[in-house]
Amino acid sequence: MIKQITFSSITKKVIMSLAGLFLIVFLLVHLGINLFLLPLTENHREIFELAANFMATNPLIKIMEIFLFGGFIIHIIYGIVVQLQNWASRGNIGYKSGNKTKASLSSRYMIYTGILVLLFLAMHIYQFYFIKLGLNSSVFMDEHGHPLFYDIAINLFTTQPAYSILYIVLFVFLGFHLNHAFQSAFQTLGWEHPKYTPCIKTLGLVYAIVVPLGFIIIPLYFLIMK
């Protein structure tokens, strides 16, 4: 294996956790914009498009985009490397009587919830980012040939209930992933303190419920309003 991915176990986990925390911040920004798909204000469409346009053209955001893709790639690659090593560490024979230790469900199934989120990410990039790059086409383009992400998103949610349901289910899994991820990142970085760790765990739980719920409300609104 190349040297960069044969770091010590702790270094690998630290890199993963830093990338993960970065993605957690990104998710919050993404949600902030997405919520304007809902008729929150009279000019919600203008706000959404203004924000989408800002994200597409601002040079600082362009630089951040490189970090974002880097963050995803690092988090995914290390997630897989760490998991493969962990499966190998048990040895050739596993336990017949299973594992009855009451570790939290979200902590035990991180790789599986992670893979589901990865599948969603691939679909999401194909449906939105690829249109921007011109690798995928859409009927919703303005006169300059720029994609109208507002219409693309609304169209998906209003005409494809199967997509909406898949979207909702995958965000529930993302919630499970985040529930463990948030406090786990702090533990890996060694940011543990008898005063603050309980707050971090609560904050992680709140984040893992509120943020996916925020995303879920959008297709749910269009499913119900239909």
Binding site: S8, K13, A103, M110
Partner: peptide, 22 residues
């Protein structure tokens, strides 16, 4: 100690805390 732990083939910690429970 961490280098030796890795060399011997123990897994990476994913903070499930099963260790503390048992």
């Amino acid at each position: 100690m961490v280098a030796k732990m890795d060399e011997l083939g123990f897994g990476n910690c994913t903070n499930t805390y099963a260790c503390e429970m048992e």
